[in-house]
């Protein structure tokens, strides 16, 4: 485990601790290069690209937007619920959310 953790500490965006998952989603969903993915996500969040890895900025913002926070806040959207909010924020479709919607009775 020391190796992946070392990479994350050295170079990583630290996932839902900040906005790393969102940038990763845009790279994977739209083949965006990292600069473009950061610009896109920063614009959607209303922050600078420097803020995307800043826990100080992202912690409260993530909770306000309901897109998942790293500490387990009772009542805050988690899992599928958080991802559905991410879909709306980033204007993308997420496969697991599509499946969820298809399984919920109309």
């Amino acid at each position: 485990m020391g190796m992946p953790i070392s990479h994350i500490m050295t170079s990583g965006m630290s996932g839902i601790r900040a906005a790393g998952d969102l940038v990763a989603r845009m790279e994977l969903a739209k083949s965006m290069r990292v600069g473009d993915a950061k610009d896109y996500v920063a614009k959607k969040l209303g922050v600078s690209t420097l803020d995307l890895s800043d826990e100080y900025v992202m912690r409260e913002l993530r909770e306000d937007l309901g897109i998942g926070v790293i500490t387990s806040v009772a009542g805050a959207p988690k899992g599928i619920a958080a991802k559905m909010n991410i879909e709306k924020l980033l204007d993308i479709k997420i496969n697991s959310c599509e499946k969820f919607r298809s399984q919920v009775s109309k």
Binding site: M9, S11, G12, G20, L50, S53
Partner: peptide, 22 residues
């Protein structure tokens, strides 16, 4: 012991093998 990228240059980290590491 460790170095770090300059602030603003962080990148996403994807994983091979993933959960089996645990």
């Amino acid at each position: 012991r460790m170095v770090g990228v300059e602030p603003g240059k962080e990148v996403p980290v994807t994983h091979d093998i993933g959960t089996i590491r645990i």
